[in-house]
Design a protein around this nucleic acid. Structure first.
Lengths: 213, 213
DNA sequence: CCTACAATTATGCAAGCGTATAATTGAGTG
DNA sequence: CACTCAATTATACGCTTGCATAATTGTAGG
């Protein structure tokens, strides 16, 4: 009979389910904005029943927080990984870092939607705000370390200002590329980014990077 | 008697009502994100009944579009006005433009929330997307004109790249300042912006601007 | 093999959403 | 002053939302 067949399922560990729900949440937000991430939609995408979400997350706000935390963690570790395969020379390391931030997969239309979807929560929820703050400052400190390693002499105040400026350039160009991807030709943004960061720091970064084919 | 008193009202022109509804929409989005801009909330803030919204806007999506258009118009004309009171010297004009973009009232926590709230609509609705595109390119062209007026010689391709880069710096710094206003001291960002744009263009813009008290 | 318990599903509810439609009322016109 | 019609309000409907609670079922341990 086709009436009232109860859904069959497998028992899973808490870790697996939580991660599936978080992934589903992020997918939905990037696809259709925060409004699309309803409890029911998340449940369906995670192949689970709405009730189970309440079992693992006290409230939907809780799930949202966890999703943001997870997103930030991913971005942070991704940033670190770029440097693992980078050359040892300070200028080349910085150049590789900048270029990687302005090319796919970092430049990705869906990434901006995801990022924008959380903006409002960042401003309202103190917990989320703190995660945002820590991530942002961590990224900037990493950039500042790369700049400090360059063969120049610069005091702390100048390093700070340069790091803020370079971070601004990267963020801004990243934004432009995500928002209007068809407005730029391939690698144009990365080249502009390298030239600009180089100009801010008073050096040539363009020759440090091989044009990847 | 306190039963069933019908709301008293004044008849208004179509212009007045539409503008009030648009303003209410923008206020609500900036305060509480796109989710807070419900038809009922908009109506209350505009001191009007939900039904009237439907009378002036065929659908809520229509109102959203009109609100975005209005927002972009305001930003565009505000940008133009800065240049009206600016000096005549090209470098000073550019410097004034850059500095103004990185200080209040352009730098405003609520502005970013507003901007972010529309991001998703920009990506999905072709009409809104076109408005966004036109506004963005208009701003960049204005910047490019300011750069082109500088006493240098530069070909078209270089001008384009420089305009993109400068726009990126301004956007990125604007974003940083809006997102974490307490992370910077007063005028720090404007100074960094002037220094960075100057570095990209190979000139000194800092001396072009008086520090406003 | 069965028993017990946590993992999971199913059902239901109150509130809020956008929208449709009908009833009122303010204000200009003769 | 009455008439008229657009501007405005009021009411209602169907749908979705987050959340609570009760009923099941997969699975590990004796």
């Amino acid at each position: 009979m086709m009436t009232g067949e109860r859904k069959s399922y497998r028992r899973e560990g808490q870790e697996v389910r939580r991660e599936a729900m978080i992934a589903a949440t992020l997918d939905l937000i990037s696809e259709g904005g925060i409004a699309a991430a309803t409890v029911r939609a998340i449940a369906e995408k995670a192949d689970v029943t709405p009730g189970l979400i309440r079992h693992y997350f006290k409230t939907k706000e809780d799930l949202t927080r966890a999703a943001y935390q997870s997103l930030m963690d991913k971005m942070t570790t991704a940033n670190g990984r770029v440097l693992d395969t980078a050359p040892a020379a300070p200028a080349a390391r910085l150049a590789a870092f900048v270029a990687a931030s302005l090319r796919p997969p970092v430049v990705d239309p869906s990434a901006m939607g995801l990022w924008a979807g959380f903006i409002h929560q960042v401003q309202q929820d103190p917990l989320i705000r703190e995660v945002h703050r820590a991530t942002y400052l961590g990224y900037r400190d990493l950039l500042q370390d790369l700049i400090a390693a360059l063969p120049r002499q610069a005091d702390a105040a100048r390093l700070r200002a340069e790091a803020i400026a370079c971070n601004g350039v990267i963020d801004g160009l990243w934004l432009e590329a995500c928002a209007l991807p068809e407005a730029f030709v391939k690698d144009e943004l990365a080249e502009i980014g390298l030239r600009s960061v180089g100009a801010i720091l008073g050096m040539d970064l363009l020759t440090e990077v091989e044009t990847k084919t």
